[in-house]
Amino acid sequence: MSESLIPAETLERVGEVLSGPITTVIDRREAQRYAYAVGDENPIYFDEVAAQEAGYRTLVAPPTYVTHAVVQPRTAADLRTDGLYREGTRIRLRVDRVMFGGEEWDFLEPVCIGDEITATVRLAALDQKEGRKGSFVRQVRETTFVNQFGDEVARSRMIGIAR
């Protein structure tokens, strides 16, 4: 049995809010800029009539756009050498690096242009596992997105693999 990669005080943080709540209004130009950048010109993102014919209140945003919409403006002085922004809360683990393992999304209600979305990020899980290349920690950051009606519209779980 190998040594724990998760310090006891870090394990106690499971469930803690890591960032947010952050509220933002879904902007038509930004959502469409995103859809163009993906190369996804679905009419429900661009054509009000097409969106309503498809059963939406108004234009919708691409499914995972909501996670980018809530990125806060930051000064370039906050960039680390790898180009990512310094995080306010670090999760201390006995590891060298954290890789993106994947994402899991639930889309519960449409996110429409003009919606006011509030995002809250929590440390949802930390589990040490044994893999072919030794021990690693599966770290899950869950973000919940709630709209102006109080409905949860989406939930994302970002899986980090720390070893």
Binding site: G39, E53, P62, T64, E103, E104
Partner: peptide, 23 residues
């Protein structure tokens, strides 16, 4: 990931609703 969602929504059409993806 966005391309995966597009792959599904292109196939399913505008009246369908994407409920979830994992990658």
């Amino acid at each position: 990931g966005a391309w995966l969602t597009q792959f599904v929504t292109d196939w399913a059409g505008p009246a369908a609703r994407l409920l979830g993806v994992t990658w």
